[in-house]
Amino acid sequence: MSTVTPTPGRKVNRIGLEQQQYRGGKTTLCAGCGHNSISERVTEAFYEMGVHPSNVIKLSGIGCSSKSPAYFLGGSHGFNAVHGRMPSVGTGALLANRKLIAIGVSGDGDTGAIGIGQFVHLMRRNLPIIYIIEDNGCYGLTKGQFSPTADLGSKLKTGVVNDLPPIDTCALAIELGATFVARSFSGDKKQLLSLLKAALSHRGTVMLDVISPCVTFNDHEGSTKSYAYAKDHDDPLEEVSFVPFFEDINVDYEPGTTQEVVMHDGSKLYLKKLDESYDPTDKIAALRVLQEAQRRGEFATGVIYIEPDRDDFLELLNLVDEPLAMLPLEKVRPPREALEEVMESLR
């Protein structure tokens, strides 16, 4: 439970907490690391949406990215699991307590290499979790080796050129069944914040790939994951704005220019189209837009695919409303007659 009592006159969110109460520990990542900007946006999004930190679990695997949950939401339980295996830990935690709000932070190696198996099945299950890939195309903690999201022809600091095609985690997620797939850039504060807030309104897997340059090992000329490259090749599909369910705001737009998506909790996502033909609820179009951007050497950002109404994994399991972890003995131990019935069938 958060411990700070709001000081009168200070700015608080709809549940009476200050933004300070959403902060985590001091970052130990490099100065200028894209991951730190993402942690800041997460802090803002949870604060602005008024999510209580004690209802949140933060999960991660191993790597620079996976350290970042320690740097936001200090009042939430966190679990820094083993390399590439955060999806299974998150799945188990949500099975135990379906009321928790789960945010997982992974990296491109943690997801695309060692963790690709668990990633695939997480997407397939449409588990209600916000899964962020802090994507810098390299392994930072082990000093800069290529990861599977590194682009073909991208160069390491040492001059080594990547000769394998990248895994497009967004395309994979869409293909596999994730119901909210977006890409962003750690340097685009506004877009990333809107996407994170929308993610909190979604029931199902949110897969958010955030290009997040590694200032130490992958920010040089020849890298396709540097700040400079990202700024030049960021190709937003739409202007994203988000109106949460608890705010009474009407957004006017000219018909045909903006797509309005009503989220699971009643919040509204407004996507002002930059490419008029694009429809993010069309799976095939979403895959095409990713392919086309890649062919141009750019990366499409914004909401790439969204399916707001599909049942998530926990719905499919027909669980009781109360968290399984908190069920009392009488709910989880069948009565004496049940055992006797079984024994009788075995005599």
Partner: peptide
């Protein structure tokens, strides 16, 4: 791997 990962996640969150 995932089977035990899930059990560990659930055990951490208080389930048997």
């Amino acid at each position: 791997i995932a089977a035990l990962g899930m059990a560990i996640g659930a055990g951490w969150a208080g389930a048997r």
